[in-house]
Structure formats: C-alpha cells, structure tokens
C-alpha cells in the first residue's frame, strides 16, 4: 500500500444484529475506498446511509462484520493508530465537571506528549477556538457552540495527521461555519488529511477535494468535487465594469459560433455571503452602519 494512502477499506461490510443474532440492518455493504494524505475527503449521503458507521468502523468503535479497514496501514481496531488521529463527533461527549483547560489537559495526557508541549498546545488551542474567557468554567455551563469548539480543540490536541469530522458544520451559525471551513482548509494546507461526513452540501462543496456519496450503505459516486460539478457544455464568465455595449457584443459573439447564451446579468451573492460581509464589516468598525446597496 503506497505510503501516502492514509485510509483503505476493502469490501468493508457492517450488519447490525439484535441480541439473538438475527440480522436487523445492513448498515454498510462492501465499501472499497482509498484516502490519500493531504486531501479533504467528504462522505455524503442522507441520514442512515452509513456515513457515521463508516467513520466509527475506521475509528474501531465498531467491529466490521466482514472485510477490512486499515488506517495508517494498521487494522482499525489497533488502538495505537489513535495516536495520530483526531475525531470530532457530531455531539462532543465530554466530562461536564471538567473545565476546558482540564479537559484538554486530560486528553493531552492520553498521548505521548511532554508536559510542556501539552501545556503549550492547550493554551494554543483554547486561544485558537476562542474560549480564552471561558477556560476556567466547567463544561456544564457551556453553550452549544462553545461545546462544539472545545470538542474540536480536544480532537486536535495531539496535532493529528488524520482528522475525522462528523457533521462538523451542523448547528453552527454562519460565522462558526466559516471559521470551521477556514480551519479545515488551514489543516489541509499543513498537510493533514481530513475526512468529513456531512449533509450540508454547500459546505462540502466549498471545502472537499474528493467526495463519496453513499446511499443505503452502498457507494454511489466517488470523485473530485470540481470535476463532478462541472457542467461541461456551459461556460460561466464573471466580469466587472462591463458596459451594456460590451455585453451586447459578447451576446453576438456566442451566437455566431452556434453557442446559445443562456443568461447574462448581475449575479446575486448568496445570503450567507451578505451576512458574513456585514458581520465582518461591523467587526472591522463597530457603530452605525449605512444600509443600502453594495458593490461586489
């Protein structure tokens, strides 16, 4: 297995059985997958399609009914692989009676890290996820967002090479989502491998390099995001300061070659884009803001 393949599954199947061993749900059927180092891989699919099951099988939380799941070349149930893995579950299950610092310190101790490194990374992460003010307070008093962020911090405490994110953006406000996506991209830039499963398609679109779409436990589609989304027979041009005259000439040009102009006009930015711009603007200079039109 080439050394840059981080995760590999060979017809990985998982069948949930009830107490008497009778087959109840075929959660995953013969999944074959390869994820290389340094890419953001998305796992998409409606609820119950086997995304979370796959993640749990990769983490060794569940045992495969048949087939193999290898992480860093070792079997998923081998605990030592976890040294280089970070996992952010959908809801982060952390001890309510510990404060943020204590939580990170506790999870840090579970890794081969010197005390100094652990201290330093705890401070860094708390600062990074913006919980500095709340670092002494017990988790039971945290809001949903804050819990999310401390969950993320504990996933990154050991500077993992492979990070598994389960629905990272659900339940976050647009600002949070933006930060999350930005963080994922930063991690990839630092050579980490990220696997995320989500049903927020636009987030996946923004971030993922390659995606796999699962439906009822079966792999339906696999490939790079951009190649998959490209509509080959339609070209899209974005231009600024285009007078009406030029727009007319462009229209003629297309029709001359036999092309067909589908549409031309001012593009609308997404509401999310608007929302973020306003927030960023008000962060830049607080106080009253002039409402009204805007330029791109």
């Amino acid at each position: 297995m080439p050394n840059d393949v981080v995760i590999e599954t060979r017809n990985l199947t998982k069948v949930y059985r009830d107490f008497w061993g009778r087959q109840k749900v075929r959660a995953l059927k013969a999944l074959d997958l390869e994820i290389r180092r340094g890419e953001i891989f998305g796992l998409l699919g409606p609820n119950g399609s086997g995304k979370t099951t796959t993640i749990k099988l990769l983490l060794g939380l569940l045992f495969p009914t048949s087939g193999r799941a290898l992480v860093f070349g070792r079997d998923a149930t081998d605990v030592t692989k976890n040294e280089r893995i970070g996992y952010l579950p959908e809801e982060s299950y952390l001890y309510k009676f510990l404060s943020a610092e204590e939580t990170l310190d506790f999870y840090g101790r579970l890794f081969k890290m010197s005390r100094r490194l652990r201290r330093q990374r705890t401070a860094e992460l708390i600062e990074q996820v913006g919980l500095v003010r709340a670092k002494r307070r017990q988790l039971r008093e945290y809001s949903k967002g804050m819990t999310r962020r401390i969950g993320l911090a504990q996933a990154l405490i050991n500077d993992p090479e492979l990070i598994l994110l389960d629905e990272p953006t659900t339940g976050l406000d647009p600002l949070g989502t933006r930060d999350m996506k930005q963080m994922i991209l930063d991690l990839r830039d630092r050579g980490k491998t990220i696997v995320m499963c989500s049903h927020q398609l636009d987030d996946v679109q923004d971030v993922c390099d390659r995606i796999a779409i699962l439906y009822e436990g079966e792999l339906k589609e696999l490939g790079r995001v951009d190649s998959l989304l490209k509509v080959h027979d339609v070209t899209e041009i974005h231009a600024k300061k285009v007078s009406d005259e030029t727009q007319r000439q462009i229209k003629q040009l297309i029709e001359r070659d036999g092309g067909e102009l589908v549409s031309m006009g001012n593009p609308t930015i997404t509401l999310e884009r608007l929302f973020l711009d306003i927030i960023e603007e008000s962060e830049a200079h607080p106080g009253r803001r002039v409402r009204g039109g805007r330029e791109a």
Partner: peptide, 14 residues
Amino acid sequence: KAKTLHTIVTKPVR
C-alpha cells in the same frame, strides 16, 4: 450512557 467513553476510546487508550 453519557457516551463520554467514546471520546476516550478514540484516544490511544487500551
């Protein structure tokens, strides 16, 4: 029940 064990099991803990 509180699933706090999940986070621990995902760490390199035997």
